[in-house]
């Protein structure tokens, strides 16, 4: 068991290291000469060299990488070029905003999608199933900005039920805040529903078809009991683990949704950084997103293993 934990942690650490290397190369090496980019094509070569020296971008790559990473460890995330503020001052509040939005969406979508997935599995190949799977699939695959725009048009403008901007006036109570967050959250819900429902359905069907379910049925247990005690126990556990790994998917959607609803979260911050070619902000933002994803996956993985008796008690007697 301890071995298992250590292996997982070790693998996550390696992945994290590679992630930082990829992000570093993506934002510092690929774009080429940093000072030239900043100063423009007509700047004097000596000014470019000087700025490069000042920024440390004339040093060997590994040294630049080392400086960046050690900075990260000391909480020095660099300075944003476009905001002229330390990056950590920007990222902190943005992260909180994003988490709020994501949590609201998750609270709505997870029970709904699991219910939908189980219902589809139990009514396999019947109309209910087709409606849930095909409907869910169609909603899931449409880009967030398309879903968001249609929601804004329908609920925001035509029906005038919800505010179009996600930002509640300062000092509003939680209910008002939720009201403002509803449309962006609903966009996420729509995008995630089909995906989670589909995974739940697959897991439940696998469990329904398993020999042990047949054994339980042939014991003479009522179907409801069989499903509750034997089927769902085996199908929901992996589903929940998979849902947790969907945070990456969710964060990707946040870039678009936050931009669309003008909501000051991580997604919009990264987008703005990309637009303004603010590389220090961009690379740190992307790295943080990657870390959030890795941690979520790791936790889900560990939780799943801890709950799974086959791993908890790995060896037979």
């Amino acid at each position: 068991m301890a071995r298992f934990l250590l292996t997982r942690l070790g693998l996550a650490a390696i992945t994290l290291f590679l992630l930082s290397v990829i992000v570093f190369f993506g934002s510092q090496v690929l774009p080429g000469n940093v000072a030239r980019r900043k100063l423009g094509p007509f700047a004097d070569q000596s000014a470019v060299d000087q700025l490069n020296h000042q920024l440390g971008t004339d040093k060997p790559l590994y040294e630049q990488y080392w400086n960046w990473v050690s900075g990260l460890f000391h909480g020095d995330l660099g300075t944003s070029l476009s905001y002229n503020l330390p990056v950590n001052q920007l990222i902190g509040p943005a992260l909180v905003h994003s988490l709020k939005l994501a949590a609201f969406a998750f609270v709505m979508v997870v029970p709904l999608a699991i219910l939908g997935g189980v219902a589809a599995a139990l009514k396999r190949d019947k109309l209910t199933d087709r409606v849930i799977t095909i409907g869910g699939l169609s909603l899931t695959v449409v880009p967030e900005f398309v879903t968001g725009i249609i929601l804004i048009l329908v609920f925001g403008l035509w029906l005038d039920l919800f505010p179009v901007s996600a930002n509640a006036p300062d000092g509003s109570n939680i209910l008002t805040q939720l009201k403002y967050l509803f449309l962006p959250a609903l966009t996420l819900v729509i995008v995630l529903f089909g995906y989670i429902a589909r995974i739940t359905r697959a897991g439940t069907i696998e469990s329904l078809d398993a020999d042990y379910t047949r054994t339980a049925m042939l014991k003479g247990l009522p179907r409801r009991t069989v499903i509750r005690r034997h089927v769902l126990r085996n199908s929901l556990l992996p589903t929940i683990a998979v849902i947790a790994t969907q945070t990456g998917y969710l964060i990707g959607g946040l870039v678009v949704i936050e931009t669309l609803f003008n909501y000051p979260g991580m997604g919009r911050l990264i987008f703005t950084a990309a637009q303004k070619k603010d590389f220090p902000l961009l690379e740190t933002g992307v790295l943080i997103v990657g870390i959030v994803f890795l941690v979520a996956t790791l936790l889900a993985d560990l939780a799943y293993s801890l709950l799974n008796p086959r791993i908890r008690y790995a060896t037979a007697e």
Partner: peptide, 19 residues
């Protein structure tokens, strides 16, 4: 795994900005 840790759209964004 490392590449997949970053949402697809952000990786693409990063690369398009860089290139």
């Amino acid at each position: 795994d490392a590449i997949l840790a970053i949402p697809l759209i952000i990786t693409a964004l990063l690369a398009v900005v860089a290139l």
